[in-house]
């Protein structure tokens, strides 16, 4: 009988332990979810808390001759960069980084596009722009427009540009070198600084997707 009593007590004890472990497991799960919910993703760029629709790019023309229509990019993460073809360093560096980050996304790469807007319409033709950006990634597209349109669009994206140092017949174009992200719903969500780290950019892009 002592074995029966012992077995009964043992059964009680096991059920009790299982109950405690179940409750603890549930609490750990809830706690982990709560902490995940509370802890924001450490973006490497500046995130807009109340994202608004990305400013219109009406008036700009894509390298295929069509007008820029941001709605055509809905469902995709659109990276926007203002630069120019003769840019010596920061532009090719940023485009190369963006291309690497896109490839690193694997299956999600198709959901990411990049639009480079040339702030040097005098020297950057649409055909040349298309070849230039697709040398970095086949999915990249480019656009430009007249100076007035570029002024309007660039200002709304926080971009400054202007003719800079003259180098003989050549000149540089000073411009803000930030990379922006328009999310899948067409909201301007994030602004990355010029100095990017590939891993963090990839992580940010995954989070935005």
């Amino acid at each position: 009988m002592s074995d029966v009593a012992e077995a009964a007590r043992g059964s009680h004890r096991r059920r009790g332990v299982l109950a405690v472990l179940s409750v603890l497991g549930l609490l750990v799960l809830v706690g982990w979810l709560a902490v995940s919910w509370i802890t924001p993703h450490p973006y490497s760029g500046t995130v807009l808390q109340a994202p608004e629709a990305a400013p219109s790019m009406d008036g700009l023309v894509l390298d295929d001759g069509s007008e820029v229509d941001l709605t055509a990019f809905e469902g995709q993460l659109l990276l926007v960069y203002f630069g120019y073809m003769s840019c010596p360093d920061v532009c090719p560096t940023t485009l190369s980084m963006a291309a690497s980050a896109r490839r690193a996304l694997g299956d999600d790469a198709d959901r990411v596009r990049l639009l480079m807007i040339s702030v040097d319409p005098e020297r950057d033709s649409l055909d040349a722009l298309g070849d230039y950006v697709r040398s970095f990634d086949d999915s990249f597209v480019a656009a430009t427009g007249d100076l007035g349109t570029l002024d309007r669009v660039a200002a709304q994206y926080g971009i400054f540009f202007g003719r800079g140092e003259e180098l003989g017949d050549e000149y540089a174009v000073d411009h803000t070198a930030t990379l922006m992200g328009i999310d899948t719903e067409g909201h301007l969500r994030i602004v990355w600084p010029a100095a990017l780290e590939l891993d963090r950019l990839v992580a940010d892009m995954r989070e935005l997707l």
């Binding site: 807009l48 808390q49 109340a50 608004e52 200002a155 994206y157 926080g158 971009i159 400054f160 540009f161």
Partner: peptide, 11 residues
């Protein structure tokens, strides 16, 4: 303070 939107670029 909230991050409202981008300030315009200007020259």
């Amino acid at each position: 303070l909230p991050r409202i939107r981008l300030a315009p670029g200007y020259a």
